[in-house]
Write a protein that binds this DNA or RNA. Structure first.
Lengths: 229, 229
DNA sequence: ATCCCAGTTTGATACAGCGCAAAGAGCGCA
DNA sequence: TGCGCTCTTTGCGCTGTATCAAACTGGGAT
């Protein structure tokens, strides 16, 4: 039992169609936890014993290659389930989840997944839609990496970030958490140098305005053109 | 009702744990169909109204970019489910399925998926494991494309093909369906020219032996070394 | 006020792999 | 037997990006 408010989940996909009483039940077995910037929620290879819902903040899901390079699999924004590999029959986490800013999560023991699926109508369907959307995004990234060159890929990556973590500001849309050139290079399979050069060029053309750890897209339309989609 | 044999499905993952009577029921609502080489089972963007099981042959799942380039998402070997996007909430096929050789499929109307899931214990779990494996493979490909260079990627692709469609022959392991340089380039995001050069070089080192539309890996170990994993 | 460090910018150089081009080579078909 | 199609091989020049190197900047800690 905890004192979280039902309305927290009422509008979030897998719970949206549930009744308040059911949401109450789910909340009562949830563990809330706050994570500082840059800490890990779970790590690649560990037993996938819990699944998570991100209530606030942004999470970077990364994989590390044998020689230590990092590749960003995806970014999670608030309101999304993550760490649900167990729902696809995996017993270990296939990736590491790092907080990109301060985060608030709810989590449940993995074994409850099956309970939720059988007990709450629509829970499974809605959850697997999340998986579907991610598979789709992964497919798109594969196509991108296979066919487009760096400038287009970086443009696509920026657009994805804007779509899922964009915050309107006076001069355009800002990416709502601290992000470095290095981070972007890890999303696109390039180097931070190349990303820096691209952003500099785009800044000159008035497409973006960036500072240290911060990017504002001032001309999204132009960015779409560059992305070649 | 049809005259297919229950043993067809008895050892295939989502059906493995079912009783023969249940398999019979499933078979009775299945439609078998044979496809010639190079024909399409379903196409990107069409209504995902059926899901499939590949009984025999090999299928190439591709996506086409706006400018007509093809990217191979994955290869399906016999015994695998495919076209199951609907299970993840998609109403259209996200890719096109082309036969790589002569194929035999069973298919069911999509609406039966939900029936199977509720009626047959373990069907859902086993099916989602298939999805899990594919997500995993996609993740690996993203990491590969982001960090490795062409030679390593092609080596990885070949190894994947060998693992899932390898047939032992006298001098090594042969890929069990016709495959062109072009096909491999579409799996790895390169050009057929580069693939051709690599295969020529590998042939000289005694790692592979290839002919027109045919590849035999004679020294898998060396290929693993090249793949850098 | 100063130091330090993480992040950024920019230049110079090298090279992997692409694009283009053209010549084989295997195979079905008439 | 020869034609035509698809697939393969190989050469050559070019260019997009990585790599190496070095300087700059802003902000937090002492």
């Amino acid at each position: 039992m905890n004192n979280l408010d039902e309305s927290l989940l009422a509008n979030i996909p897998p719970f949206r169609k549930l009744q308040l009483g059911q949401i109450r039940e789910i909340l009562d077995c949830a563990t809330p936890k706050r994570f500082e910037v840059g800490t890990s929620v779970f790590e690649e290879g560990l037993d996938a014993d819990r699944f998570y819902l991100l209530l606030d903040g942004h999470i970077r899901v990364i994989r590390t290659t044998p020689d230590g390079e990092q590749v960003t699999a995806l970014y999670i924004s608030s309101g999304q389930l993550f760490g649900i590999a167990a729902a696809l029959g995996r017993s270990q986490y296939p990736a590491t989840a790092l907080t990109a800013d301060e985060c608030l999560t709810l989590s449940w023991p993995t074994r409850l997944w099956q309970d939720f699926v059988t007990k709450y109508d629509g829970f499974a369907t809605e959850s697997y839609k999340v998986v579907g959307a991610r598979v789709d995004e992964m497919n798109n990234r594969i196509v991108e990496m296979a066919t487009q060159q760096v400038e287009q890929r970086v443009a696509c990556a920026l657009l994805r970030l804007v779509n899922q973590a964009g915050k309107k500001v006076s001069h355009g849309v800002e990416i709502d958490f601290p992000i470095t050139r290095q981070n972007i290079s890890e999303m696109t399979g390039t180097t931070l140098h190349t990303v820096s050069r691209l952003l500099s060029a785009w800044e000159k053309s008035g497409i973006v305005a960036s500072e240290r750890r911060k990017i504002v897209v001032t001309n999204p339309h132009q960015l779409v053109l560059l992305s070649g989609t």
